[in-house]
Measured scan of single mutants.
Amino acid sequence: GLTEEQKQEIREAFDLFDTDGSGTIDAKELKVAMRALGFEPKKEEIKKMISEIDKDGSGTIDFEEFLTMMTA
């Protein structure tokens, strides 16, 4: 499992990506986040990433899903 410290770091990354503070990361926010990390993702790639992570089919990534992605 994760230490509380690791969870906190992932939470901070999540909050950075969640620019509108909605508690979820949408495609637009993910794209901005990827760019910040030096990637140039295409729209299809973003969609694919979200569909792989987005277990509940909401079209957005919540913290639990993000946590799973970061620790996979």
Rank of each mutant, 00 (worst) to 15 (best):
40 E>R: 13
43 K>D: 15
52 E>C: 15
12 E>Q: 12
26 D>L: 09
49 M>S: 03
21 G>L: 05
44 E>S: 11
52 E>Y: 14
58 S>A: 05
14 F>W: 05
38 G>F: 02
66 F>Y: 02
9 E>V: 14
7 K>F: 12
60 T>M: 08
29 E>T: 12
57 G>L: 08
47 K>Q: 14
5 E>D: 09
34 M>W: 06
12 E>A: 14
12 E>D: 10
71 T>R: 08
39 F>T: 02
66 F>H: 00
13 A>C: 14
72 A>L: 15
64 E>N: 11
72 A>W: 15
11 R>L: 03
16 L>S: 05
19 T>F: 12
72 A>R: 15
57 G>D: 07
19 T>E: 06
72 A>V: 08
9 E>R: 15
59 G>A: 06
33 A>R: 04
65 E>W: 12
54 D>C: 14
15 D>G: 05
21 G>Y: 05
3 T>V: 03
30 L>I: 09
45 E>P: 03
60 T>C: 08
11 R>A: 02
70 M>I: 10
45 E>Q: 09
38 G>N: 03
9 E>G: 12
59 G>V: 04
42 K>L: 13
56 D>M: 09
42 K>A: 10
67 L>E: 01
16 L>R: 12
16 L>T: 06
59 G>C: 07
39 F>A: 02
52 E>S: 13
40 E>S: 13
59 G>K: 08
67 L>M: 07
12 E>K: 15
8 Q>E: 05
20 D>E: 04
22 S>G: 03
64 E>P: 04
52 E>W: 15
48 K>A: 11
48 K>H: 09
19 T>I: 13
14 F>P: 00
62 D>L: 05
36 A>N: 06
13 A>D: 01
14 F>E: 00
28 K>L: 08
9 E>N: 13
48 K>E: 06
49 M>G: 03
15 D>W: 11
37 L>I: 05
8 Q>D: 04
63 F>W: 08
53 I>C: 10
21 G>Q: 06
48 K>Q: 10
7 K>R: 11
56 D>R: 11
64 E>I: 09
20 D>G: 04
41 P>F: 15
15 D>R: 14
59 G>R: 08
31 K>G: 11
46 I>C: 11
34 M>R: 00
32 V>M: 15
32 V>S: 15
69 M>S: 02
23 G>R: 03
64 E>R: 07
13 A>L: 15
29 E>A: 13
56 D>E: 07
22 S>N: 10
50 I>M: 13
60 T>Y: 07
53 I>D: 03
63 F>V: 02
41 P>H: 13
40 E>W: 12
42 K>I: 09
55 K>A: 06
8 Q>S: 07
54 D>M: 12
16 L>G: 03
57 G>M: 10
53 I>P: 02
60 T>I: 05
41 P>Y: 15
9 E>M: 13
51 S>R: 06
44 E>W: 10
13 A>H: 05
37 L>R: 04
49 M>V: 05
54 D>K: 12
26 D>F: 09
8 Q>V: 07
1 G>F: 12
19 T>D: 04
55 K>M: 08
13 A>W: 15
47 K>S: 12
5 E>K: 12
44 E>H: 10
32 V>R: 15
46 I>W: 11
54 D>H: 09
65 E>A: 14
47 K>F: 10
70 M>F: 13
24 T>Q: 07
9 E>Q: 11
65 E>L: 12
66 F>P: 00
68 T>V: 09
35 R>P: 00
12 E>W: 15
14 F>G: 00
56 D>C: 10
25 I>D: 00
5 E>H: 11
30 L>E: 00
29 E>R: 09
34 M>P: 00
54 D>Y: 10
32 V>F: 15
31 K>S: 13
49 M>N: 02
31 K>A: 14
22 S>K: 06
13 A>V: 14
53 I>G: 06
7 K>V: 12
6 Q>K: 12
